[in-house]
Design a protein around this nucleic acid. Structure first.
Length: 848
RNA sequence: GCGGGCGUGAUGGAAUGGUAGACAUACCGGACUUAAAAUCCGUUGGGGCGUAGCCCCGUGUGGGUUCGAGUCCCACCGCCCGCACCA
């Protein structure tokens, strides 16, 4: 008897697919198209189990769609610009370009043995000049259509290394290399006008029926549409030009409870005061340390500085309130100034308590509630409360009603107007780094900022740069910056900032439809292949990447690079979970953890018998030594085993824990299937047997269940059905013809997950051609219906018995049989049933 | 701090509001073997009783809706993801 030898089988079929160009995406009129895309990888140099899981899921869909008669586009590329390449150059020397392309070659070599159905002829990397040159062309088109502009924005500044830091490079408010306290500093930067599209990006979410609800909700909250009142306080004793402070509030119903005004340290008034008052300057400088992330700002201790300036309450000019500079107010949202109502906002309450400010309620839980509060009273906006200081007179109403009433009242009183605002900010794309797409503009002393001419694209990165000092090597390069002004021809300077890598990943899906086109896209190809029918990636991209890509598709349409039908580029989205692994650790004499590799641990012990602590289900990370290399799994068990396992144990949207035992079990199962096929192939071709009908019924049910499983991303459930059917087939005594039909169908149903094994079985059974080209099996509806069914019988919701009845039995008949059941009579104990609920084909519930 | 998600046996998980624990792992038992491995078969949520059977409890905690809740609603606890310069 022969054995299952994946190494030999997999190499053979991969070669066959390649020779036949099986996965080359072609446009033909006779078939519908299907575009399946997994979020392309960053070329770190090693593939990991997360990649295997991501690409296997896409591959299952791609192969299933090939089998169901589609022209499938399933491409692969590399998100190749970014900081790690520069970090590597700083840490170990070498050049980011060499490092990146070396990693791409390595990873391609590691990916090919997985047997993915990828059209490799479309491969590109975002650091290819052919790609980023087209991206520069897009930038120039965006500039022409007024979709991009320049303004000041803050960055993290490391005062020791004299360089801009990414948020990731700021650790606890300090630079990761220098350890210096990070400061916020303003630079002039390029911005995409994404916020102009806020309403459209928000309302279009409703049409994305095949996106996870949670992603749409996160995007909607991120865009953050709100209705509120914008008005001004008039100031007392403020510097010239600051006689008003504009404020935006979503809770104008609390305006009569205002007790202070807060402004951002970056507010124009704060800046004016800073220039003339050393104490203010010191406070603002303190506020500007510690990184630019919203998280850092909002979790920092709330601090305020009383400017001594007062404002008059618009509805009671005798009521003067202090103006504080406060570190938790963001200049980017609203007007950069707020009024504080401590009674109905927890943060304001904390602030007022700290600085001894009055706490004035505008509504209370009840008419006779005490006005003194020991905490902010913040009920849901839909709850009815009693307004003791409302604008529509004292009365009961919900917050929602009161807000509308307040806006209305204020507008009529001439205090501001109702406005709609969005939290979404414009997308800053400038990066002060080398390894990115150069921004194709020139700075000329006479002409100002001038776009580069399209015929000069791509503006290529120079190769001769060094990374021995922090900062952007393009700034230090002796000649690269020097150029002629495209407008006047005078000597000018090239912009040295490069683009955010999110720009690269915001249109690569469109480029895949015509990767060698002389323009960013070819409209014919884009019209045929777009949209991406199924996009698959991690939930961590739920907001930024997906929002930017949606904006880019709109912008590309405006510039004529995508059809109108492609402004929502991803028809269906699936967010998959991570691959995790246990962490094994012991403690050193100071109690610090010492991590151990999985292969050094047996039965929870090290070789010397020391017991290890086990942390279950942790994200794979090199420093925790819990990384499993897919290449080891492939060389031990084959790609089909790795693919089968990552799909089998957990639902795709959840994390899956990699276990050695699970991988072993997957391999055993595939061996079992292979042996089963081998046994059937050796059977007498004319052999008759028993139970052909039962086997074929089980087969058709399996076809149905697995098809549903694949279509609904229930891969783990589909695999459970395949396990069960394998067991059924293994035990079957059916004749050769039925068994052959069963094993070939099993191979087909498994083929999206285990394509090599399936091809081999197909060939061994004389299937003819390759299984990858065979049409997907169809379940015979007549074979799915059972004549009799088992119905559980509940008494008061608890299961007490079950009965076997014909599937089409009338309700009354079922009820009669149920009530006559011995266990039901016993449980009722003489009581008369009040009601009997019969759910046909499902369940009977007797209510006593 | 803000936004989103998740929580079911020893473990990963299954379950259109309708028999909780499919399928797999692990454990235990059996067959085969001189033995082991491999392979095959079987048992296994917890507790109890008069043990061919029956009863009670059970899906993070506490409430609620329903004939019926793992599933829907509210509150709490724990963990995970994102927070605009990580990709």
């Amino acid at each position: 008897m022969s054995r299952y030898t994946p190494a030999e089988i997999e190499a053979r079929w991969q070669q066959a697919w390649e020779e036949n160009e099986t996965f080359k995406a072609v446009r033909t009129a006779d078939k519908p198209k299907y575009y399946v895309l997994e979020m392309f990888p960053y070329p770190s140099g090693r593939i990991h189990m997360g990649h295997v899981r991501n690409y296997t899921m896409g591959d299952v869909i791609a192969r299933y769609k090939i089998a169901t008669g589609h022209n499938v586009l399933h491409p692969m590329g590399w998100d190749a610009f970014g900081m790690p390449a520069e970090n590597a150059a700083m840490a170990i020397g070498g050049h980011p370009k060499d490092w990146t392309y070396g990693n791409i070659a390595d990873m391609r070599g590691q990916m090919k043995p997985l047997g993915l159905s990828i059209d490799w002829s479309r491969e590109f990397a975002t650091c290819d000049p052919e790609y980023y040159g087209q991206q520069q062309a897009l930038f120039l088109d965006f500039l022409e259509k007024d979709l991009v502009y320049r303004k000041n924005a803050v960055v993290n500044w490391d005062p020791v290394d004299m360089t801009v830091l990414a948020n990731e490079q700021v650790e606890n408010g300090r630079g990761w290399r220098s350890g210096a306290l990070v400061e916020r500093r303003e630079l002039t930067q390029w911005f995409f006008k994404i916020s102009e599209h806020s309403e459209e990006l928000l309302s279009a979410l409703d049409r994305l029926d095949n996106w996870p609800a949670k992603v749409k909700l996160m995007q909607a909250n991120w865009i953050g549409k709100s209705r509120g009142l914008q008005f001004a306080f008039s100031t007392v004793d403020a510097p010239d030009g600051h006689d008003r402070i504009e404020v935006y509030t979503t809770r104008p119903d609390t305006l009569l409870g205002a007790s202070f005004v807060g402004i951002s340290p970056d507010h124009p008034l704060a800046k004016a005061l800073e220039r003339e008052n050393a104490d203010v300057a010191a406070f603002c400088a303190e506020c500007r340390t510690g990184g630019t992330t919203e998280e850092a700002i909002e979790t920092a201790e709330k601090k305020g500085f009383d400017t001594g300036i007062r404002v008059r309450h618009p509805f009671d000019t005798a009521h003067e309130m202090p103006v504080y500079i406060a570190n938790f107010i963001l200049m980017d949202y609203g007007t950069g100034a707020i009024f504080g109502c401590p009674a109905h906002d927890e943060r304001d309450f904390e602030f007022a308590t700290k600085y001894g400010l009055p706490i004035i309620s505008t509504f209370l839980p009840a008419e006779d509630s005490a006005e003194e509060l020991d905490a902010a009273y913040v009920p849901p906006k839909t709850e009815k409360v009693f307004y003791n200081r409302g604008f529509a007179g004292a009365q009961w109403q919900t917050g929602e009603q009161a807000i509308d009433a307040a806006i209305d009242f204020c507008e009529r009183a001439g205090v501001g107007q109702g406005v709609t605002k969005y939290r979404l900010r414009d997308w800053g794309l400038s990066r002060q780094r080398y390894w990115g797409c150069p921004i194709p503009v020139v700075h000329c002393d006479a002409c100002g900022v001038v776009p580069e001419k399209k015929e000069n694209l791509p503006i290529e990165l120079p190769y001769d740069v060094t990374f021995d000092t922090p900062g952007n090597p393009l700034d230090r390069h002796p000649t690269w910056r020097d150029c002629a002004c495209p407008a006047c021809g005078a000597p000018a300077r090239r912009e040295t900032d490069t683009m955010d890598t999110f720009v690269d990943s915001s249109w690569y899906f469109a480029r895949f439809t015509a990767p060698r086109a002389e323009a960013p896209t070819n409209m014919e190809d884009a019209a045929y292949w777009m949209n991406v029918d199924q996009y698959i990636g991690g939930i961590e991209h739920a907001i930024l990447h997906l929002l930017y890509a949606r904006f880019f598709a709109r912008a590309m349409h405006i510039c004529g690079h995508l059809p109108a039908s492609a402004v929502e580029p991803f028809d269906a989205l699936f967010t998959q979970g991570m691959v995790t692994h246990e962490i094994y650790l012991t403690r050193d004499d100071k109690g610090r953890p010492v991590y151990h590799l999985p292969e050094d641990v047996t039965d929870g012990k090290l070789a010397d018998g020391t017991k290890v602590e086990i942390i279950p289900s942790a994200k794979m990370s090199k420093s925790k030594k819990n990384v499993v290399d897919p290449l080891n799994i492939i060389s031990n068990y084959g790609a089909d085993t790795a693919r089968w396992f990552v799909l089998s144990d957990s639902p795709p949207e959840r994390d899956v824990e990699w276990t050695a035992a699970g991988a072993e079990a997957a391999f055993k199962h595939l061996s079992r299937v292979w042996n089963l096929s081998d046994k059937i192939a050796q059977m007498d071709k004319n052999a008759e047997g028993e139970g052909d009908e039962d086997l074929l019924r089980a087969m058709h049910k399996t076809i149905h269940d697995v098809t549903m499983g694949i279509e609904s991303f229930g891969f783990n459930a589909a695999i459970a059905k395949l396990y069960a059917f394998t067991a059924t087939l293994g035990k079957s005594k059916a004749g050769h013809a039925a068994q052959r039909q069963a094993i070939m169908t099993l191979a087909q149903l498994m083929s999206p997950m285990t394509p090599h094994l399936s091809e081999d079985i197909w060939a061994a059974q004389g299937g003819g051609g390759m299984i990858v080209n065979a049409p997907w099996p169809k379940a015979d509806e007549a074979m799915l219906i059972d004549d009799t069914i088992t119905m559980p019988i509940q008494v008061n919701g608890k299961r007490r018995a079950e009965i076997n009845v014909p599937a089409d039995m009338a309700k009354e008949e079922v009820e009669k049989i149920a009530l006559a059941h011995e266990a039901v009579i016993r449980t009722l104990d003489g009581a008369t049933p009040k009601k009997v609920i019969v759910v046909p084909g499902r369940i009977v519930n007797v209510v006593a």
